[in-house]
Simulated assay, not measured.
Amino acid sequence: MKIEINDVVGRLSYKCDILFRVIDIRLLDGQRTAILYGEDYRLIADAPFHDLKKMDPREQDRLIQEFRSKEEQSFDLFRQDIELLKQKQEYTMTNAYRDEFNYFQVPGKVLHLDGDPSYLRKCLDLYERIGVPVKGVHCSETEMPNEIGPLIDKYRPNIVVVTGHDAYSKAKGAKSDINAYRHSKYFVQAVREVRRKYPHLDQLVIFAGACQSHFESLIHAGANFASSPSRVNIHALDPVYIVAKICYTGFKDSVNVWDVIRNTLTGDKGLGGVETKGMLRTGMPYKIDEEE
């Protein structure tokens, strides 16, 4: 079966467990090789044509439905978390419901840099569903260290997301060697650029990384949350769940790391971080303009 750019394929050696889209075709080591982006995981890979299977629409639909079911389950759990956070804020503002106050809430603002325009659109849709103010920018991973400083100056966010595609290659070195990763070093450089401007972890919160990224280097560079502690694949929407929880946690409260990652699609094998303060601020009064 002929395989072309933009076809959806699976890798036979991995039992077609992940859907990939072919983004490029090259000649590597004398054989035709496809460059692959994960459809739902932030993974970049390459595979020879003989290891690829073009997925028919029925197989695609089955796998897509499985993923969408997991996404909705994770979203429902996350929405319950957000509702509990809002109830806690309301309880505090109304003096345990003894007083009536008209108040408003200002969640943290997010700047989301993504190396994949398709994933960026998915993330922006989820931010909108949750109600997080966000500016999304498509930027290749290699250019993120150069682009992130001016973008922060322009949009002045409270939270920065630096993500896209990544992968570890055993052939390039040990897991401790950052040069064995496709894009981890660029994520690390971008995080360092942010920390030159905002060195305090609670002044500006950073999520950085993608599938199989070098977690330790990202945390040491100054990220509050990062991927991937066990070098596993992370879901395309995992960064949104993490930063949204921070956005809706009061600035006087700390975000427990386990509370943040427990309802993500990947969990603690793919995501981790350090204790971080929330970004939500509550104000009053909330005034509704009256019609004259």
Score class of each variant (00 low, 15 high):
residue 8 V to S: 05
residue 10 G to Y: 06
residue 19 L to S: 11
residue 23 I to N: 08
residue 24 D to Y: 06
residue 26 R to E: 13
residue 29 D to H: 13
residue 36 L to C: 09
residue 37 Y to I: 13
residue 37 Y to M: 05
residue 38 G to F: 08
residue 45 A to H: 00
residue 45 A to F: 01
residue 48 P to D: 08
residue 60 Q to G: 12
residue 62 R to P: 03
residue 66 E to T: 14
residue 66 E to P: 06
residue 69 S to R: 15
residue 69 S to N: 15
residue 72 E to M: 07
residue 74 S to D: 15
residue 74 S to V: 14
residue 75 F to P: 04
residue 75 F to D: 07
residue 75 F to V: 03
residue 80 Q to R: 15
residue 80 Q to F: 09
residue 85 L to T: 07
residue 86 K to H: 14
residue 87 Q to D: 10
residue 93 M to L: 10
residue 94 T to S: 11
residue 95 N to P: 04
residue 97 Y to L: 12
residue 99 D to N: 12
residue 103 Y to A: 12
residue 108 G to C: 05
residue 108 G to T: 05
residue 111 L to M: 03
residue 113 L to R: 02
residue 119 Y to K: 02
residue 120 L to Q: 00
residue 120 L to T: 02
residue 121 R to D: 13
residue 121 R to N: 13
residue 124 L to H: 09
residue 125 D to Y: 06
residue 129 R to I: 05
residue 133 P to G: 03
residue 141 E to I: 06
residue 142 T to I: 09
residue 146 N to C: 11
residue 156 R to D: 04
residue 162 V to C: 01
residue 166 D to I: 04
residue 167 A to Q: 15
residue 167 A to H: 14
residue 174 A to D: 12
residue 185 K to D: 04
residue 187 F to D: 01
residue 190 A to R: 05
residue 191 V to M: 03
residue 193 E to T: 07
residue 194 V to I: 04
residue 194 V to C: 01
residue 203 Q to H: 10
residue 210 A to E: 08
residue 211 C to Q: 07
residue 213 S to M: 02
residue 213 S to P: 01
residue 217 S to P: 03
residue 225 F to Y: 00
residue 231 R to N: 02
residue 232 V to W: 10
residue 235 H to S: 11
residue 241 Y to Q: 07
residue 243 V to S: 05
residue 246 I to H: 01
residue 253 D to Y: 14
residue 254 S to E: 15
residue 255 V to K: 04
residue 255 V to T: 11
residue 255 V to H: 03
residue 257 V to E: 08
residue 262 R to Y: 06
residue 268 D to F: 12
residue 269 K to T: 10
residue 270 G to F: 10
residue 274 V to G: 08
residue 280 L to N: 02
residue 282 T to D: 10
residue 287 K to M: 12
residue 289 D to V: 11
residue 289 D to P: 05
